[in-house]
Design a protein around this nucleic acid. Structure first.
Ligand SMILES: [Zn+2]
Ligand SMILES: [Zn+2]
Ligand SMILES: [Zn+2]
Ligand SMILES: [Zn+2]
Lengths: 168, 168
DNA sequence: CTAATAGCGTTATCATATAACATCAAGGAG
DNA sequence: CTCCTTGATGTTATATGATAACGCTATTAG
């Protein structure tokens, strides 16, 4: 189950992945400094690994990656870091996969939601607030007070759908 | 973790619960007969327990309920029944709780989605297709081919929100 | 510096889910 | 009816996901 830190799945999506990781860590530093949160070495390392994988990553895979170079960390080490990062809004949990992914989105006006490709495994975070609006109005109608939402849409991303139709 | 089969949480929602269970089982019989599926004794029993609980129920709680009267079933017994029921569309999995709940909804035109109350624990399945429409259009725009969706909105149901504001 | 607190290491254990293989029951072909 | 195939179930073991509890250490407020 443990996976290499490099991300094969991104082959169809060219971008400067090193910068991607660096930027995410820089943002995290800023956010934590502003909010008086402590982004300790372990927490930072876990966040870095999550971004390096660049797709939903399981807690025990992160643990294996941490321990890859002679480490010997135990599960609570990772779960505590994950709890912190979730709390700080720096990552999200993909409930349908028991996996975690980095967040690069401003959530002041819309809640997390994902398109997840079954082929390449990537989870794209959607920013539109249309879905939130509809949910809000449906909730209003039902007298339901929304607290938190889990929206995970599985399917085929554009790149993988294109590849598939080309092959057939 | 194991819970009694009767459902305290439904106290604020008066309805003929026995009929509720009976109807669900009758519908299941019909669906399975029409589709050539075998609703065996165990599968039927698991479905009955899920409806009896009437809120998202965990696999091991179901197992405990099955074994309550001198039984000795093992986990695969329950998980296999759950797999069958999921496949047949007779239940849904609430991913954010690792729990299962009965379905009484026609899904020809809209996918499963839930409002889940943190207070009473009930999960109400929403039927509106507005949310599906918005997701479909967002997906279209992104070139994403939707296969399956997980939509779970947590919060306070009308009854529990009312009770809370009354108390304060 | 000191005390209080937050973070972390470590061990054990709980909770969720599946693999693998043996056995059994139902239904069709001959 | 008998044999055979298939799908369902029983059983044991194990994989995978997550947390409790406790003591030590590092950080920081005063
Ligand atoms: Zn996000
Ligand atoms: Zn893809
Ligand atoms: Zn349903
Ligand atoms: Zn409620």
């Amino acid at each position: 189950m443990a996976q290499p830190a490099t991300n094969v799945a991104l082959s169809h999506c060219a971008h400067d992945h090193e910068a991607c990781i660096t930027d995410a860590l820089a943002r995290a530093d800023t956010v934590c400094r502003q909010q008086g949160l402590r982004l300790t070495a372990i927490r930072r390392r876990v966040l870095e690994l999550i971004w390096a994988n660049h797709q939903p990553t399981k807690a025990y895979d992160l643990l294996a990656q941490i321990n890859a170079k002679r480490g010997n960390a135990a599960p609570p080490t990772v779960y505590r870091a994950l709890d912190f990062l979730l709390e700080a809004g720096l990552i999200h949990k993909i409930e349908s996969q028991n996996a975690f992914i980095g967040c690069a989105v401003d959530h002041e006006r819309n809640q997390p939601k994902f398109f997840i490709c079954r082929e390449c495994g990537r989870a794209a975070e959607i920013q539109s607030s249309q879905i939130d609006d509809v949910i809000a109005s449906e909730a209003q109608e039902a007298g339901f007070v929304v607290d938190h939402q889990t929206i995970e849409v599985d399917g085929l991303c554009a790149a993988c759908a294109g590849a598939e139709s080309t092959n057939s």
